[in-house]
Structure formats: structure tokens, C-alpha cells
């Protein structure tokens, strides 16, 4: 992908930074004039990924979450959420809907939301090695499809 713009932000794994992360991505993408639906999808997916990094990656500990967002020349968006937390032993299980790694009130829907709202989601993780979630979505895909129809 030919990169048109890119940001990289590090922040502490504090819950109030979930809103910071999704609003930052929204601000980054505004110049591309995304639809409300595209913006909502991306904000929600980022919220899920960052919440997972804080709740599951770092649990009670505090660490750094890195968010990198890239915008390609064709309107393609790539977002990486990286933590150096405990990692995921069984990625396939973690991605299953309604599996939640904690006993609280998490719905276990984080990856389902990311997969439904983005075009693709990749996860790289190993126990003790942290987790990287890479999500992609092409802006303007709906308009392009409508124009073709």
C-alpha cells in the first residue's frame, strides 16, 4: 500500500484512553471524508481492540498500548493496536464469539465486532509476548459498489 498519511501514538493502558484512541483515529480519518457509518465502524473496532489490550493484555498491570494508523492512497485504512501484555495462548478460542477471558460482564464480542465492522482482522500473539491486532478497511467501498450497480 502506498502510504498517504500515518500516525503512531503510545498511551498508558488506562481505560479513559479507549475514548482517546477512537477519537484520535476518527480525527485522523476526517480529512478523507468518510461516511458516518464508516467512521462508526472504525471507532467501534478500535474501541474493542484497545479495550481488549487493556483488560486482557495488561489485566491489573499498567503498560503501554501503541496505536498505528495508516491511510493509503486508495482510501485504504490499516490500524494496528499493539500491547506488550500477557499475550494470547489460543487465538482461535479468543476470537470465538461469546468467549470471554474474564469472569466479569464482558460480552465476549470484541473480535466479532472487529471482524464484522472491518474488512479484515489479523492477530499475532504468543504467551508473554504481547498481542498485535491489525485491522483493515477500505473507505468508499460502499459508494464504489453502488456506482457499479
Amino acid at each position: 500500500m502506498q502510504i498517504k498519511n500515518e500516525i503512531c501514538v503510545d498511551f498508558l493502558s488506562r481505560m479513559e484512553n479507549v475514548a482517546f484512541a477512537r477519537l484520535t483515529v476518527a480525527a485522523f480519518l476526517l480529512a478523507e471524508d468518510p461516511t458516518l457509518e464508516e467512521l462508526g465502524d472504525i471507532k467501534t473496532a478500535v474501541s474493542e481492540a484497545v479495550t481488549n489490550a487493556i483488560v486482557h493484555g495488561y489485566r491489573a498491570a499498567t503498560g503501554t498500548v501503541r496505536m498505528r494508523a495508516r491511510l493509503g492512497a486508495e482510501g485504504d485504512v490499516e490500524i494496528e493496536i499493539v500491547d506488550n501484555g500477557c499475550g494470547i495462548a489460543d487465538i482461535a478460542q479468543a476470537r470465538k464469539p461469546f468467549f470471554s477471558g474474564d469472569g466479569g460482564e464482558r460480552a465476549g464480542m470484541g473480535f466479532l465486532v472487529m471482524e464484522s465492522f472491518m474488512d479484515s482482522v489479523e492477530v499475532e500473539s504468543a504467551p508473554g509476548e504481547g498481542t498485535m491486532v491489525r485491522m483493515r478497511k477500505r473507505l468508499g467501498a460502499a459508494q464504489t459498489a453502488a456506482a457499479r450497480a
Binding site: T44, S47, E48, T51, E105, R106, A107, M109, G110, V113
Partner: peptide, 13 residues
Amino acid sequence: EFMDSSGIGMVIG
């Protein structure tokens, strides 16, 4: 104005 799956967890609870 915004809700992620945390809201679903809250409603199910």
C-alpha cells in the same frame, strides 16, 4: 452517541 460491546455486556448483566 457511541457504544461498543461493553454496552452489550452491561445489558446482558
